[in-house]
């Protein structure tokens, strides 16, 4: 089943990061194995002698060409709306895309998004023509405000970036899904295991954005494939409709005409 992001149809519901892999070659193999058509990347300072970024950029361009995919630049490291706005404009010129994974961090310890600066930045960017994919906390009212500002896609966290702790607060995430049925919801950050991704898809999330869970696996290429399977499994389960949980046991096998040992 396809995922639609700002009018672009994608074959995979997985969005994947390009950082932390053991090598650029493994990054490329893993992303291809994941089936993802959206890769995240960033912009950083580089001194005049350094050229390692150029090699990564070349790899990322190759991947996008090979997958018929899309770049999703982020604003990692920004702490104010103004910083994020400038970095977004730089990204748009360089990467030739109006898509933006908007990150505005409010706390250095757990890299928690700053909801107030995030809203301010979102408003500025939408006015300037960006298609914003905001990375936010799992707060219903914040997600609602982002949606009201015009974000078609909203990306609440599962848990802090890079922790691999999975879905910290499933109740919040389920509530956001139920209350924003028309928003495209992508769970971003904190995914550790394929079963985490599967759980979010079973809740009806539209996609998953992850990086560390694949890049830091012992075998990133195999893990990328495991995540692709988990997403498919979770999505199919959501479409199939899960059974209602019950408080008491119900026998699966018919109780009528049971054999002789129950007859007395």
């Amino acid at each position: 089943m396809s995922l639609s992001i700002y009018g672009e149809k994608l074959n995979s519901r997985l969005l994947i990061g390009t950082a932390l892999y053991p090598s650029p070659d493994i990054m490329k193999q893993a992303i291809l194995a994941s089936g993802s058509q959206v890769v995240t990347l960033s912009l950083k300072r580089q001194n005049p002698q350094e050229q390692s970024g150029q090699q990564i950029w070349q790899y990322i361009q190759d991947i996008v060409k090979q997958t018929n995919g899309f770049l999703l630049p982020n604003t990692a490291g920004c702490k104010t709306a103004k910083e994020a706005f400038t970095l977004a404009q730089m990204s748009r010129e360089l990467f030739q895309t109006s898509w933006l994974k908007l990150e505005v961090i409010g706390d250095d310890y757990n890299l928690q998004p700053d909801p107030f600066e995030l809203l301010k930045a979102t408003e500025m960017l939408i006015k300037d023509g960006f298609n914003v994919l905001p990375y936010c906390t799992d707060d219903l009212v914040l997600c609602q405000r982002l949606y009201d500002l015009g974000c078609e896609v909203i990306m609440p966290w599962a848990s802090p970036i890079g922790t691999g702790k999975g879905l910290m607060n499933p109740y919040n995430l389920e509530t956001i899904r139920q209350r924003l049925p028309k928003a495209t919801l992508i769970l971003d950050a904190g995914i550790g295991k394929p079963s985490d991704a599967c759980l979010a898809m079973e809740m009806g999330y539209d996609g998953i954005l992850l990086n560390s869970a694949v890049a830091l696996a012992d075998n990133p290429v195999l893990m990328a494939s495991a995540f692709a399977n988990a997403l498919t499994s979770g999505e199919q389960a959501y479409q199939a409709g899960l059974m209602q949980q019950r408080q008491t046991a119900h026998p699966s096998t018919p109780t009528l005409d049971t054999p002789f040992w129950h007859q007395n």
Binding site: G17, T18, A19, L20, Y21, M27, T40, L41, S42, L43, K44, R45, Q46, G53, Q54, I56, W57, I60, P73, N74, A76, L87, M90, E93, L94, F95, I161, G162, N211, S212
Partner: peptide
């Protein structure tokens, strides 16, 4: 980019030059 040759500098200005890099 089209403004690089036109934007004048003054003492104390600060420029950032950013390049593509991997990211999550």
């Amino acid at each position: 980019k089209s403004q690089y040759a036109n934007r004048l500098l003054k003492d104390g200005d600060s420029i950032d030059v950013l390049f593509p890099i991997h990211g999550g």
